[in-house]
Design a protein around this nucleic acid. Structure first.
Lengths: 354, 354
DNA sequence: CGCATCCCTGACAACGTTGTCCAGTCCGTG
DNA sequence: CACGGACTGGACAACGTTGTCAGGGATGCG
């Protein structure tokens, strides 16, 4: 009876493998069933040479029959390389993060690696917890978008032990490592210059919290552009802090209220831009707006929204490439890649009163 | 000399551990340095009782000095549970997916699990590849947004072996498993009914490719609402297919061109909504639009965009909860959770010619 | 027909951790 | 002072895989 019908389990000599729920067949089980040695199964599974077609087929049959799948945990333990990469973001639900994430995933896929992801929510402790958890899983490398105020010395032992680390969007603190940044200052300068070209002289800047590298760089670019044009900056125009609707509203009110009210506005990130657009809606007076970071629907607003566009996918791609180049043995000092921004001018009709 | 100063490496009897690059200290190294047994180190690392404060401190010192971090690969191999979950999405860069992903991450975090993520790009083969790769890593469970046309029988051996699987947004094919869906038909019916209440009688439906469960359900809801109101549906009004700008544009043109041109439109997903809004801009005649799935900026359009809002975070949360309940031992038949949609009416002024 | 050679196969150890179990120590009590 | 108990510490095996190495069978050549 070669096709053994449903027999009472456990009554025949050649016992069926213990198919109890939760048990996974191992190479040992496969070997027993195929009547070969464990190592031979390993050879077949990994496509190594040195197995006759006949034997290989027997093994394959056993694998299929048992539903065997190699346990990569054991493989990892033995081989040292895990073929996985950890990605620590601010918040995966954010369009910037998710685009970056997708790009990293793409490159990882090309290199046969899987991706762990986690969101830090801008909390340094959470960032560290995530990064170290990934390290404990022995990821080959890490891509980290640093949380504000994080100190990356905690990664030194890991990096020393051979885990590659690349930082994106913001530079690391207390650690030398490959880094990919947006040209924040240059972008903000370009955005501000655009407003100046449009005839504005009183321009406000509404950015994210100080301590966040990108926020400070963008502020710097704004100040540089103003200085270049010989324009003074009234303190009431500049506001840095959380970019929730309330604070943005208050800051906007302040910038527009004083004796020298701003006629134009540069917002320092997506959330601020959205909040500002909503507020400006309610206003009677036209206020020109340039936002840092593109919005998918910026062209649908009326008037269209001019933005300083970053390239989150480009950042992710660049970071992942740096990472894998390290994993492939690249040595040498830490590298810094800076990606340019692109000024996307839309809705040219919103020129304000001169 | 208890605090051994910087000696020439490798010259003293008690040799410093081989700190060559890429070598990680193990519990064995820590034990040797602390002068205790390996198991004692394990106890300290895991906070198990049975170690005097004095010994524990010596071990801790050795851990810090060597920069030891437990190798979770080995731990996983030994313990069987990996404290990790795999998430297969359509495209993490998509707002729907990333919101869902964030919610799953949140629940996983509460349960002390890490998250593998991967994008299938609506390709069943890629979905399978990802899911099985996660299984080979012995994730405890999987959350899968099925790709169109996927057959999930490939997961049967894994599920049988004890890996929990939960499906989100679309039901599995060929496999019984916990599933979380949006009330797609009901939502589309509500959206359509809204347009009917507004006085429209010729309403078009522009959905995603047939074969995608959500697309078909939404089409069904649309047809139900029309039938309920006793309204005929002209074939030229209904179009299913990829939701890129070109096809959407063509479909829209067809719906508006015939002898019975539509005066209103229900779009079946985000991308279609965006494409439709862009096209309608260029038109002279007003066409009412209700979109399936909310857009963050829907209120900023003029007129505001009425949508049938889903709850991607809710889907993710529900799916993750089902998953972890299984991991905690919940048995019993597959469960189906259906989350309601919410009709968000905006811009009431777009009533068309009666 | 004998010997060398090559190819296939299998036994064994090791990866780093945790569970089991036993030996030793220290204390209090009778 | 002897004994029991509690508690600390350590030796050993096991998780499932892969690398090393050696044995055995078939084949080719002299």
């Amino acid at each position: 009876m070669p096709s053994q019908p449903q027999a009472t389990p456990g009554t025949d000599g050649r016992a069926a493998p213990p198919r109890r729920y939760g048990h996974r067949p191992t190479m040992k089980d496969v070997a027993a069933r195929a009547g070969v040695a464990l190592k031979t199964v390993s050879r077949v599974v990994n496509g190594e040479p040195g197995v006759t077609a006949d034997t290989a087929e027997r093994v394959q049959d056993a694998i299929t029959a048992l539903g065997f799948r190699r346990n990569d945990s054991a493989r990892i333990l033995r081989k040292g390389r895990t073929a996985s990469v950890g990605l620590v973001l601010e918040d995966i639900a954010d369009p910037f993060s998710s685009a970056l994430s997708r790009a990293v995933e793409e490159v990882a896929r090309l290199h046969g690696s899987l991706l762990f992801t986690g969101s830090s929510d801008e909390d340094p402790a959470r960032e560290e917890e995530l990064a170290l958890a990934f390290c404990a899983r022995r990821v080959d490398g890490l891509v980290v978008v640093p949380a504000a105020g994080a100190d990356h010395r905690y990664l030194a032992p890991e990096v020393h032990a051979g885990i590659a680390a690349v930082f994106v969007d913001r530079p690391p603190a207390g650690l030398e490592a490959d880094t990919v940044l947006t040209a924040n200052a240059a972008g903000a300068r370009a955005g501000t210059a655009h407003l100046i070209r449009q005839g504005h002289r009183r321009i406000a800047f509404l950015g994210d919290s100080p301590g966040i590298h990108t926020a400070e760089e963008r502020l710097r670019g704004y100040r540089e552009a103003m200085a270049e044009a010989g324009l003074p900056v009234d303190p009431s125009w500049v506001s840095m802090g959380p970019t929730g609707p309330d604070r943005v509203g208050a800051a906007l009110a302040a910038a527009l209220a004083g004796p020298a009210p701003a006629t134009a506005l540069l917002t320092g990130n997506n959330r601020a831009t959205l909040a500002a657009v909503r507020r400006l809606r309610a206003l009677d007076r036209p206020v020109a707006l340039v936002g840092f970071d593109d919005l998918e629907f910026a062209d649908l607003l009326s008037p269209g929204l001019t933005v300083v566009a970053q390239d989150p996918a480009g950042l992710g791609r660049a970071a992942a490439r740096l990472l894998f180049s390290r994993l492939e043995g690249e040595t040498g000092p830490a590298r810094l890649v800076e990606l340019p921004t692109r000024l996307v001018v839309r809705g040219s009709g919103e020129v304000p009163p001169a």
